[in-house]
Design a protein around this nucleic acid. Structure first.
Lengths: 213, 213
DNA sequence: TAGATTGTTAATCGATTAACAATC
DNA sequence: TAGATTGTTAATCGATTAACAATC
């Protein structure tokens, strides 16, 4: 076990490994090798072994990795062995889609509350698709208080760009330490607060460079 | 102008520069420097100058960059000076959100058609939020033909994971060269076809590593 | 055991930064 | 002009890969 600081780029690959391992487990497999896992995720076997070795020795020479054990260890490392509550701010199209998204359940996350500042929306129910599970859209004016009382550390920011920085400031004030930002601008946050950006137009532009129209 | 191959990582930063420049332009600014732009995007000034120098000399010593000109050049480089038609496959929650998303219009993209294989959904209208603009959900069985006839080169894949690879194969067959994949698995595509992945759970897990629950 | 595969080291490769002449 | 900022080079830094002893 190496206690030194792990490079961000190594950390960023761990969720990819975990997702692939969960798929292998779902397919009924119990062991895998760095070579096989590498083919699944598009990363070299040496890279995977080196990444994992930052956190411990999880494999066995000759046989590879026992999948349930590696899933358990990676889940612990990423702190997703328990479920995180997440707040959603901005209940436009993206906000609604995020609340209804079925892909968080088995990955360590659960939408716990959602907010908007539009009087037309506040108080409305949002169905999640999960039976017996719906949310009432809360008043954004109570956001700091509600998030702090619920001890929520993660938020998905789905407001228009014009409101995003101000909302981010409030989220930080409320104790949120990680923001998944769907607004198309870079958020400024204090050190210690993590931000990840999702901007589909950016991803599309990363592809068109290589494509003939 | 350097005609050598530009590293992928440089290309991946260009859309970020472009987005920041468009925001500066919207704010009424006409010139900027690598230092100022760097502060906006969180990238060093030297890095920005080096990245841009891969494609030409766009600045002036002493004054920096003329924003409209740099926007024009980056738009050309990324091939977003004209609008790309995009197909959406899988009209669940994500598919609907993507069709209604207002953020593509001024970034070089337009949803042109959408598909599903569910008889309940085929033929239904999807409102986009843009006045007088709605789509009829098309039958996925005609997808290859429809996409090829419309000469569409970009698609957003919003099906469940179980269908994603097969859909991707059909998209490639239809002539699509870039796929924005919302399904939580890695797609296998021939070389020459670009894929970008958006998986919100991955992004959340990249933050929880650093956060105390 | 013999074959397979790990964890780790050293070598390679590539990306970022610092510095500065050129020049607007 | 003098100050500012570019484009570019060389130096630094960090990440990836190849190779292999250890060992299951």
């Amino acid at each position: 076990m190496n206690a030194a600081k792990v490079p961000d780029i190594v950390v960023s690959r761990l969720p990819v490994y975990l997702r692939a391992l969960q798929r292998l487990a779902d397919a009924g497999m119990t062991t895998t090798s760095s070579k096989e896992l590498g083919e699944k995720v598009g990363i070299s076997a040496a890279q995977i072994r080196k990444d994992l070795s930052q956190f411990g020795e999880f494999g066995k020479q000759g046989t590879g990795y026992y999948i349930p054990y590696l899933i358990e260890r990676l889940s612990k490392i990423l702190k997703v062995e328990h479920v995180w509550d997440v707040a959603v701010v901005g209940m436009g199209e993206i906000g609604h889609a995020v609340v209804r998204y079925q892909g968080f359940g088995n990955r360590g996350f659960r939408v716990a509350m959602c907010f908007d500042n539009d009087p037309e929306k506040i108080g409305k129910q949002v169905c999640t698709g999960t039976p017996n599970c719906s949310f009432v859209i809360r008043d954004a004016r109570n956001m700091v208080k509600d998030i702090r009382e619920a001890n929520i550390k993660l938020a998905m920011l789905c407001t228009p760009a014009s409101a995003a920085q101000q909302v981010a400031d409030h989220l930080v004030e409320a104790g949120v330490r990680g923001i998944l930002n769907y607004a198309p601008l870079r958020l400024m946050v204090p050190s210690g607060v993590k931000v990840q950006h999702i901007d589909p137009a950016i991803y599309l532009q990363r592809m068109t460079y290589y494509i003939e129209p």
